[in-house]
């Protein structure tokens, strides 16, 4: 009876948790090699060759990884600084609620907000006009849909930093970093040594898996780069959807090639993060 329940649970797990992902991956692989799709007529590797030769995937991957990497590094650094500087104040009754508020802002709203602030006719452009810095809206610098992805990164940093502040505050309390700091100081360590040898190692060691996860989430982000990104290069998810949803049916397979490569990358990252996390936990 007990075994039957476990088996039913496992069956449901496979049906809901595993099957959709495997089906999606297999379908994308078949489409990418010409074995699925309306206009495809048999096995071919020409779509893979086309993607490789065009270089668009690599550009997009590098662009996405750069944006995700910079956003995560800036967010983690800012959150770490805020946590260490204001750990006491942020536990104050109403401030402890205020720091939760940004979690209520989804990507699409953050992107909309960035448009309102940084577009050529946005709020900052209006201030610049009244300060006499620009004479027309078009003189305002490109801060959204720009080649350096400033708008995208700013949106990501706005969304991610508050989460890391909450995370670091939580770890700071749970790992009793304050007590360990006192102990280190009583043993003769100076402030710099305490920061680099006690506080930062503890906070980063406990959170690096989540930092890695956030890098992967940002790498595959869709709505923010869709609204704030430029035509080329595009971030991975935007590129994949643009290729898969295009009118030229003969090019759809190339979109699935990118989707397959992206899925393999994410899966490998999952294996790496998961097993490293496990070994760290086991060692700890």
């Amino acid at each position: 009876m007990k075994n039957r329940r476990l088996h039913i649970g496992l069956l449901l797990f496979v049906l809901i948790g595993v099957l959709p992902f495997v089906s999606a991956f297999v379908y994308a692989v078949l489409y990418s090699v010409g074995l699925a799709g309306v206009v495809n007529d048999g096995f071919t590797l020409r779509f893979w060759a086309a993607v490789w030769n065009s270089g668009e995937f690599l550009r997009s991957f590098g662009y996405s990884a750069g944006i995700a990497g910079i956003s995560v590094v800036v967010s983690v650094s800012a959150a770490m600084w805020l946590t260490l500087q204001f750990k006491r104040e942020l536990q104050h009754r109403w401030l402890s609620f205020v720091i939760y508020l940004p979690l209520a802002i989804p990507g699409v709203v953050a992107a909309f907000f960035m448009v309102q602030l940084f577009a050529k006719s946005g709020l900052f452009s209006r201030f610049a006009y009244h300060l006499g810095w620009i004479a027309e809206a078009r003189e305002f610098p490109d801060l959204i849909n720009d080649p350096y992805a400033l708008g995208i990164m700013l949106a990501f940093i706005t969304i991610v930093t508050p989460f890391f502040v909450l995370l670091f505050l939580n770890v700071y309390q749970n790992e009793r970093v304050a007590e360990l700091t006192e102990l280190a100081e009583s043993l003769g360590a100076n402030k710099k040594q305490v920061l680099w040898r006690v506080t930062l190692p503890i906070l980063l060691r406990k959170t690096w898996t989540l930092i890695g996860l956030y890098f992967i989430f940002l790498l595959g982000s869709y709505e923010v780069p869709l609204i704030l990104g430029q035509e080329s290069p595009q971030m991975l998810s935007v590129l994949i959807i643009r290729e898969i949803k295009q009118y030229d049916l003969s090019k759809i397979s190339e979109g699935y090639v990118v989707a397959v490569i992206y899925t393999i990358f994410v899966s490998l990252a999952a294996v790496l993060l998961f097993y490293r996390k496990k070994s760290t936990t086991d060692a700890g």
Partner: peptide, 16 residues
């Protein structure tokens, strides 16, 4: 469980 969790939902949807 981590595979679909980490994959961009929009890509999963496009493939499904």
């Amino acid at each position: 469980t981590y595979f679909p969790y980490l994959l961009a939902p929009v890509v999963l949807a496009a493939c499904l």
